[in-house]
Design a protein around this nucleic acid. Structure first.
Length: 549
RNA sequence: GUCUCCGUAGCUCAGUAGGAUAGAGCGUUCGCCUCCUAAGCGAAAGGUCAGCGGUUCGACUCCGCUCGGGGACGCCA
């Protein structure tokens, strides 16, 4: 919330306390920017919200508030009651323009806020198995998670970006076997990829790298021994590829936690022992079960199979314990929608272990369906024809690709029309915003002088100018809200709207006006403040703000 | 069958602490470059917010039911 809104809320609660003897919670007072600015610069619906509590008609409550505001709040130019009881505030124009100097002072830090209160929060995302190349489905989660972390950092959370590497299960054995098949092929020995194996091009590349490095040494080796080696080598090469692709896509991680490491450290055994100690475990049919149904899951889950191996769940529980041990009190996981059934059992484990029911929040990333020429393109690491992140980025660019994913809420299914993304690059909304930025830079270049910080901006009173000022003022609260709700798409909405206000301002006002030096200075200041805000917003979603287009 | 996500303009989607006349892009139809970037601006057309009921001053928004579409329901990972 910006200063004006804050002051309004405070004034209103004060008045309510004084006139109605009711201590009104700040959260009850909503200050909004009305859609139609005939209804003021800001409006409040508090009179209607209080009707029940105060047992008075909204008009009556509004009347009292309006009178007191008019008397006591000096930055309000006019205040009136409208419709069913809205209180509409018209703010003195130079008060609205005060944000320009705030933006200048904060510069690239404008938008920062302390709403997170330094809360230690660990965000786990992507976490794709190191058995294949990252494709479109992963791209959505990667960008979304990356943007969430950018928002959290901007909003004063203490955020850690983590990738959980599933490098211990059966799929890694299959990786080793698949590499072995491709490796042998390079020596003319034909074989079939196992049923659950991996047939992607990446496996061939790995086989080739291994052949270059080690020659034919695995041909004579015992199969089990060869697979043991190849799965490790394969995993490392796959991981390296994943890391490079993510970086290429503008997504970085602070921390990579290996499942194998969790196992090797004895953390799995420790977790099981602890759960046993707490009476959360029982034995049945030669397997070890977790009483997850006592904590909200619809049935109990196996921790250790009758074969003696752990299920996927068990090391992951140890993984989550490890997160808490490092001091993170809030955990956020971004999982694919197919993991939806997995959430209750992980939450059950966390609750059972005493970390609190709501310590873990899981945001599900709904499916991305790849469509081309009206037909669905199946994507699977195994069929080998998946469109990879790298291909996508080479095709349409990092900015457009990122924007496509981050602008749409993750809880809806996404049809990614590759043909459309390719052919309509210039229609992508990201260019609208980037063009606005480039336009502003161009005007700054044409101006040729430094933009001055002025003590007063009293000439910025036209409708377009006021729209811009109010919206620049909103940025901080938009960032805080987007962080709290973990919805970076709200930043996209902000960007589109801010760019729209600018383009509209540009269309109706000559910014550099040789006949009026004072007005030009003020408009240039507004322009620079807009540019800084837009650049900061673009940066929050990892999209470049070009100086020229 | 159970759980879950979704249903808003011809298409792709915003709008979710309940608020004033439901928004944007693409597409369609008109205007606007002797002037700071026309990748832009202005205007028009386009809607039973899937349907029915409930909660209340007020519902696209919250609750229930129905219909329609996606996904998940393993001693896989």
């Amino acid at each position: 919330m910006n200063k004006i809104e804050n002051d309004l809320v405070k004034s209103i609660t004060d008045i309510i306390l004084k006139k109605f003897e009711y201590q009104c919670d700040d959260g009850l007072v909503m200050i909004e920017i009305p859609k139609d600015n005939k209804n003021g610069d800001y409006s409040a619906n508090i009179a209607m919200r209080l009707t029940k509590i105060l047992r008075r008609r909204p008009q009556e409550i509004a009347q009292v508030i309006v009178e007191a505001i008019a008397e006591n709040v000096d930055f309000v130019e006019k205040v009136e009651i409208a419709g069913p009881g809205f209180i509409n505030f018209f703010i003195k124009k130079d008060e609205l323009a005060a944000c320009i100097n705030t933006v200048f002072e904060m510069n690239d830090k404008y938008g920062e806020n302390e709403s997170g209160n330094k809360l230690p929060i660990l965000v786990e995302y992507v976490s794709a198995n190191p058995t294949g190349i990252l494709h479109l489905g992963h791209a959505r989660g990667a960008v979304w998670g990356d943007c969430i972390c950018r928002l959290l950092n901007k909003s004063g959370y203490n955020c850690l970006r983590e990738y959980y590497v599933n490098d211990a299960g059966n799929q890694i054995n299959m990786l080793g076997e698949s590499v072995l098949v491709r490796y042998k092929e390079l020596f003319g020995i034909e074989g079939d990829i196992p049923e659950d194996g991996y047939a992607g091009e990446d496996i061939k590349n790995i086989a080739a790298i291994i052949k270059d490095k080690y020659g034919d040494k695995f041909l004579a080796m015992e199969k089990a021994e060869a697979v043991e080696f190849l799965k490790k080598a394969g995993k490392e090469l796959e991981l390296k590829q994943i890391e490079e692709d993510l970086e290429y896509f503008g997504c970085e991680f602070d921390s990579w936690v290996s499942e194998q490491w969790i196992v090797d450290e004895g953390r799995v055994e420790k977790a099981v022992a602890k759960m046993d100690e707490m009476g959360l475990i029982y034995e049945e049919d030669d397997a070890l079960w977790f009483k997850s149904s006592e904590y909200g899951d619809d049935k109990n889950r196996v921790l250790k199979k009758s074969t003696g191996f752990y299920t996927y769940l068990t090391p992951d529980i140890a993984n989550h314990i490890y997160k808490f041990e490092r001091g993170y009190t809030k955990l956020v996981n971004l999982w694919g929608a197919d993991h939806h059934g997995y959430i209750p059992r992980m939450k059950a484990a966390i609750e059972a272990l005493g970390y609190g029911k709501d310590a873990l929040e899981v945001d599900l990333i709904q499916m991305v369906r790849l469509v081309e020429n009206g037909q669905e393109v199946k994507m699977s690491k195994r069929t080998g024809n998946a469109v990879t992140i790298r291909e996508l980025v080479d095709d349409i660019g990092v900015d457009a690709a990122r924007y496509f994913f981050v602008s749409k809420a993750v809880d809806v299914h996404l049809d990614f029309d590759l043909g459309l993304a390719r052919s309509k690059t210039s229609d992508n909304p990201v260019f609208y915003a980037q063009y606005a930025h480039a336009r502003m830079c161009s005007i700054l270049r044409n101006y040729g002088k430094d933009v001055e910080k002025l003590p007063k901006y009293d000439l910025l009173t036209s409708e377009k100018e006021v729209d811009l000022l109010k919206y620049i003022n909103e940025f901080v609260s938009v960032v805080a809200d987007a962080a709290a709700t973990r919805m970076p798409n709200k930043i996209c909405n902000y960007i589109q709207k801010l760019a729209g206000y600018f383009h509209s301002f540009y269309g109706s006002n000559k910014i550099i006006n040789p006949d009026d030096e004072n007005l030009t200075k003020q408009r240039m200041a507004l322009l620079l403040a807009t540019k800084i805000t837009l650049a900061n917003a673009l940066n929050l979603i990892g999209i470049s703000a070009p100086e020229k287009m």
